[in-house]
Design a binder for these strands. Structure first.
Length: 501
RNA sequence: CGGGGCGUAGCGCAGCCUGGUAGCGCGCCUGCUUUGGGAGCAGGAUGUCGGAGGUUCGAAUCCUCUCGCCCCGACCA
């Protein structure tokens, strides 16, 4: 008997949350670091997850009339300057291309040559270059709305990176729309935030709080930024998606003009909205445990792994035949429009095999040996609850859809309960400070609803003192008279405070 | 970008102070034994000790520079 290890992942969440996070990713085989600083290699198990996310979200976008496009990776430097706040927001983290070829230098090594007349930046986001096209495509109100999306990579030269949560290059989707009226653009902003809410809650099983960002947390160049915020297991908040109402700021910068029904020239109203591979980081931190990754069935690359019990040198033909038949029977079942995906792992490596799949987060594991076959049974283990039991084979096959739905529901409910258990309303500044002063590591305080007077000074004071920010002004925060948690002045509603990723 | 820590086999680490040419555990390969569970025994493979210079007869070890990772801060999806 080898030494008994309690958890598949060390350290545990409680011991060292950030280290645990890194280890979960490594153990799941989703991704690893690349030779380039701050960039990551997404491996098949991780990319399959992203593909499922893209597939499902893409369908949701299209239902709202959005169409996919592709715009260039490179953007002329001057475009960035078209919107003043945009410059301030992104200039300091842009990768810049200044040369177009390499030549051999004196020592035989390659050096950049052929300096560009105008440097190009690698897109940190694409408002400006898409705005350029929109301005060409828009002459009449009949050309509007324009509803575009693209799945792409972007680069933001980050000082501090973490896998999936913040990498220098990341994958995302960015939606960009232009409208004839302010109201329509505002409506679109909320419509897309609602798509995000539904996707993140229904597919990633992460409950979110929807709201509006304060002025200081707004997207650079936006009139209004809305967001969805989720609670991680260390009680910190993660912004899982944002949707911006850009007013006419970018329309003016990019000259997106049209003639309205009255024949007058007008600037369009634009929006943009995005979600990224960061959501995967959120999914990991919301659901996973000390044995590794846990994936919600609706986005998992595979739903079931079958582990045939095989004997080395023995006759395993019957077991393998039964395994393949089970896989086929499961494949025939449709889970929310997608067939039930099954992996078979017939490696003869003992119990380590099962642990590999625990760490990969697959929702259901099935052990299938001669005894099960004789009894027309399977031995089933759920990743979410760790429940293990022998089941009638046909009952398992016929119940697989319900089982997966149950796992999906359990994950969402568990995350919701966790958030509720760590959400407070606080009216005393002293209590507020005490809570967050002691907040480190796994215990990063809570989600706190407190009153805020609306002053930037108060917001900054709290940020400076406690590293706590206003995550959002929740849409469902009721009108309620109160005193600002920081200065005590009058406030009309509570806002959501938390430490954030 | 500031402060701190760390890069040695696929993974986790020891060796470094007091230079002498690399080791342990897990994993991997082979064989036998096991078999409803992260197996046991025996044998075996794998390292330009992150990279580049320097000091030295000799560098994983000392010095300089550099790249990368992790943590804290500032910044940020």
């Amino acid at each position: 008997m080898a030494k008994k290890i309690k958890t598949a992942i060390t350290p545990t969440r409680e011991e060292d949350y950030s280290q645990w996070y890194q280890e979960v990713i490594k153990a799941s085989d989703m991704a690893e670091n690349s030779p380039v600083r701050g960039c990551m290699v997404i491996k098949p198990w991780g990319f399959a997850l992203w593909e499922n996310i893209m597939y499902e979200m893409n369908a949701m976008f299209k239902e709202t009339g959005v169409r996919n496009t592709y715009f260039p990776l490179f953007i002329p430097l001057s475009y960035l300057e078209r919107e003043a706040e945009h410059v301030d927001g992104f200039a300091k983290e842009c990768a810049v291309v200044t040369h177009h070829k390499l030549e051999k230098g004196a020592d035989g090594r390659l050096v950049p040559a052929g300096e560009l007349a105008e440097p190009l930046i690698v897109r940190p986001t694409s408002e400006t270059i898409i705005g350029e096209s929109m301005s060409k495509w828009t002459t009449s109100y009949r050309d509007l709305p324009i509803l575009l999306n693209q799945w792409a990579n972007v680069v933001r030269w980050e000082m501090r990176t973490r896998m999936f949560l913040r990498t220098s290059e990341f994958l995302w989707q960015e939606g960009h729309t232009a409208h004839a009226t302010k109201a329509e653009a505002q409506e679109r902003t909320l419509q897309m935030l609602d798509v995000y809410t539904r996707f993140v809650e229904d597919y990633l099983a992460m409950p979110v709080i929807c709201g509006r960002k304060t002025e200081s947390e707004r997207f650079p160049g936006a009139d209004n930024t809305t967001c969805i915020e989720a609670m991680m297991q260390d009680k910190r908040a993660l912004q899982a998606g944002t949707s911006h109402f850009l007013g006419q700021n970018f329309a003016k910068g990019s000259n997106i003009k049209f003639q309205n029904e009255e024949g007058q020239e007008a600037y369009a109203w634009t929006t943009s909205w995005g979600t990224s591979t960061r959501m995967i980081g959120g999914m990991i931190m919301v659901h996973s445990d000390d044995d590794g990754l846990i994936m919600p069935p609706r986005v998992a690359p595979a739903h079931v792994v079958i582990l045939p019990i095989i004997k080395k040198g023995g006759d395993n033909a019957e077991v393998m035949e039964s395994t393949n038949a089970l896989k086929q029977a499961l494949n025939a079942k449709i889970y929310h429009g997608r067939r039930v995906e099954v992996e078979i792992d017939a490696r003869d490596i003992g119990g380590a095999r099962g642990w590999d799949w625990v760490k990969k987060g697959i929702p259901v594991r099935i052990e299938l040996g001669p005894k099960d076959i004789a009894n027309n049974a399977v031995f089933m283990a759920r990743r979410d609850t760790n429940e293990k039991k022998a089941m009638d084979r046909d009952a398992f096959i016929n119940g697989i859809i319900d089982l997966l739905d149950d796992i999906q529901g359990t994950l969402f409910q568990r995350a919701l309960d966790f958030r509720k258990a760590h959400t407070l309303s606080i009216d005393s500044k002293e209590k507020f400070y005490t809570l967050y002063k002691g907040a480190t590591g796994y215990e990063n305080g809570a989600f706190v609803y407190s009153h805020w007077c609306g002053s930037k000074v108060c917001e900054e004071t709290i940020k400076k003192d406690l590293s706590v920010t206003i995550r959002c002004i929740p849409f469902d925060s009721p009108a309620e008279e109160g005193a600002c948690i920081c200065c005590g002045n009058g406030s009309k509603r509570r806002v959501l405070f938390a430490k954030a990723y």
